[in-house]
Design a binder for these strands. Structure first.
Length: 453
RNA sequence: GGCGAGUUGGCGGAGUGGUGACGCAGCGGAUUGCAAAUCCGUGUACAGGAGUUCGAUUCUCCUACUCGCCUCCA
C-alpha cells in the first residue's frame, strides 16, 4: 500500500491521506455549468481528479471509491443563452452535457461513479435551505433566501479571509435586503419567463452554491474525503459550500481534504471567458491534436503550478507518446512500478511520474512503462490509434528498394535521394538499413503529396 | 488594499539540508552511399539579500518580479 500524501488547502500543507472509510472512499469534483463547450482550462481539474480517482482505485480497489461530479444545469448563464438563441433550456443543457462527456472522454478520463444534475435535486436543495432557516443560518427576504455569514464563525477559513476584511475591500453590490453585505443567495425568485420551482418562498430557483451542498450530501453524506476544483472556486464557491453544508449538517464536517488546482494559462494570462482568450477542448481535437497529447501536456506540470499551454509542448508530447506507443505495442503490462506509484501518491506528482516513465523507456522496460503509464491514463487502448496512419506504403517500399538496389550498383544515388526527399516532404519517415527500407508515416503525413510519386 | 500560488540550465520541468534528475534542443562520436531512426558521450541553473547550520537550491525572514482570487469563471 502506497502512502498517499495530498496538499490540503484547509491546512495549507501536505498531509497523509487517511480515508474515513477505506471501503468507500468518497470524492467530489465541482462539475461544469452546462451552457457551452468546455474550454481547455476546464479540463485541468478533470484530468487531475481522474488521476486521483485512478490512484485511489488502485490503492483501495475499483469498487471502493465513489466519485461524484455534478452537472449544474440551472444557472443564469444558461437562461441567458436560451434567451439569446431562442432554444429551450432543456435542449441546451442536454446538448452541452453530452459535449462535455464526449470531450472529457477524448482526454481519457474515466466517468465518475455519479454525475448528478442539479435540476434533479431541487427538493433536496429546498429542504436544505428550509433547514438552514430553521437553524438560524439563513433568512427569507423579498422572495430571496440568504445565508447569514455572521451565523457561521468559520466563514472565510478556507480562503483565509475574514468577513470584515472582505467588506472593507468589497466590490459586491449590496442588495437592500441583505443583513450583511457578504450574505449570499440560497434561493431567488423567478419571473414567469425563467425556470422556477415552487418553494415555501414562492416560485424561484436556487442560488449558485447550494446545488453542490445538496448533491454531495445526498450522494456522499455529511462527511466525505476529498473535494476539489480550480483555485478560483476557493472563494466564494467552496467557502459558501462549506458554510451551507456545515451549518445544515453540524453532525458531519463536510470534506476532509480540499484540493485546488492552479489555473491554466495561455500566453501568460489566465484563460477565461471574460477575457475572450479561451479555446475549447474540441477546438484542439478538431485541429488534430490527439486527446492523449493534451492529457500528457497537462500531466507534465504539477497541478498546483500554473501551466502554460503551448504548441511546442504539444509537439514534444506527441513525439514522446509516439515513441512510447511503439515500445509498448503488443506488450502485456506488469504491475505498476513502485517509483511511479510513489510519485503519483506524493500529492499527484504526475510530472515526477513521467520522469520515471522516461527512465523505464530508456531502460527498455516496456511492461513497466505500460503499467506506469496506465496509472496516469496514458498509452491505453482507449486513447490509441492516433499514432498509426492507416495507409499501405508497401508499393513505395518495393519501388524504393528497387531504385536503391540499382543505385548501390552504379553508385548514382540521385534517384534514391529524390525519392527520399519526396517521401520526407509527404511526412514519411524513411529508414534505410542494410536489410532494406522501412517507411513510417509521421506526424505531418500527407497522402496527397505521395500522389506525385 | 486583503488573501493565495509561483520564480530551477537555451526551452520545458522534477527533486533534495551535503557527490546538482529527466525530456527537448545543442555539441562530439558510432552507424549510414548521404541521411533519418537508434545507440554512446557531453556543457550550462536553483530570482536577490539576510539568517539558522559544519554545510542550503532545499529551512526561516525580507525584497523584487510573475500569476490568480476578492465580480460569472475550473
Amino acid at each position: 500500500m502506497a502512502e498517499i500524501k495530498l496538499h490540503n488547502t484547509k491546512i495549507r500543507g501536505e498531509q497523509l491521506f487517511t480515508p474515513i472509510d477505506p471501503d468507500n472512499v468518497r470524492i467530489y469534483l465541482c462539475g461544469p455549468t452546462v451552457y457551452d463547450r468546455a474550454h481547455l482550462g476546464n479540463a485541468r481539474n478533470v484530468i487531475m481528479f481522474d488521476v486521483l480517482f485512478r490512484l485511489l482505485r488502485h490503492e483501495y480497489g475499483a469498487g471502493h471509491v465513489t466519485y461524484v461530479r455534478n452537472f449544474t444545469d440551472v444557472d443564469d448563464k444558461i437562461n441567458a443563452r436560451a434567451a439569446e438563441s431562442g432554444r429551450s433550456i432543456a435542449e441546451i443543457t442536454a446538448e452541452t452535457s453530452q459535449w462535455y462527456l464526449d470531450d472529457m472522454a477524448a482526454l481519457g478520463t474515466l466517468e465518475p461513479t455519479h454525475m448528478p444534475r442539479a435540476t434533479a435535486y431541487i427538493p433536496q436543495m429546498v429542504e436544505m435551505i428550509a433547514d438552514l432557516i430553521a437553524r438560524g443560518h439563513a433568512y427569507a427576504a423579498e422572495g430571496h433566501v440568504l445565508f447569514s455569514v455572521e451565523s457561521y464563525k468559520e466563514y472565510g477559513a478556507l480562503s483565509g479571509r475574514s468577513v470584515d476584511d472582505m467588506i472593507a475591500g468589497a466590490r459586491v453590490e449590496v442588495a437592500p435586503y441583505k443583513r450583511n453585505p457578504m450574505d449570499f443567495v440560497l434561493w431567488k425568485p423567478s419571473s414567469d419567463d425563467l425556470p422556477g420551482w415552487d418553494s415555501p418562498w414562492g416560485r424561484g430557483r436556487p442560488g449558485w452554491h447550494i446545488e453542490c451542498s445538496a448533491m454531495s450530501f445526498a450522494l456522499l453524506g455529511a462527511s466525505f474525503d476529498i473535494h476539489g476544483g480550480g483555485n478560483d472556486l476557493m472563494f466564494p464557491h467552496h467557502e459558501n459550500e462549506i458554510a451551507q453544508s456545515c451549518c445544515a449538517h453540524p453532525e458531519g464536517d463536510f470534506a476532509q481534504v480540499w484540493m485546488h488546482n492552479e489555473m491554466l494559462q495561455v500566453e501568460g494570462k489566465k484563460m477565461s471567458k471574460s477575457l475572450g482568450n479561451f479555446f475549447t477542448v474540441r477546438d484542439l481535437l478538431e485541429q488534430g491534436v490527439p486527446g492523449e497529447v493534451i492529457r500528457f501536456v497537462f500531466l507534465s506540470t504539477h497541478y498546483r503550478k500554473p501551466m502554460d499551454w503551448t504548441e511546442k509542448k504539444a509537439a514534444e508530447a506527441e513525439a514522446v507518446l509516439r515513441k512510447w506507443r511503439g515500445m509498448v505495442a503488443g506488450v502485456e503490462a506488469s504491475d505498476v512500478p513502485a517509483a511511479v506509484l510513489a510519485s503519483v501518491a506524493n500529492d499527484l506528482n504526475t510530472a515526477g511520474a513521467i520522469a520515471e516513465l522516461h527512465r523505464l523507456a530508456t531502460a527498455g522496460e516496456a511492461p513497466a512503462l505500460k503499467a506506469g503509464a496506465a496509472l496516469l491514463g496514458l498509452l491505453g487502448e482507449d486513447l490509441g490509434g492516433w499514432d498509426r496512419v492507416a495507409v499501405d506504403l508497401s508499393d513505395y517500399v518495393t519501388r524504393f528498394n528497387e531504385t536503391r538496389a540499382k543505385a548501390m550498383e552504379n553508385k548514382d544515388f540521385s534517384g534514391v535521394d529524390a525519392m527520399k526527399q519526396a517521401l520526407i516532404a509527404a511526412g514519411v519517415e524513411v529508414r534505410m538499413s542494410k536489410a532494406g527500407v522501412e517507411l513510417v508515416p509521421g506526424p505531418g503525413f500527407d497522402a496527397a503529396k505521395l500522389e506525385a510519386l
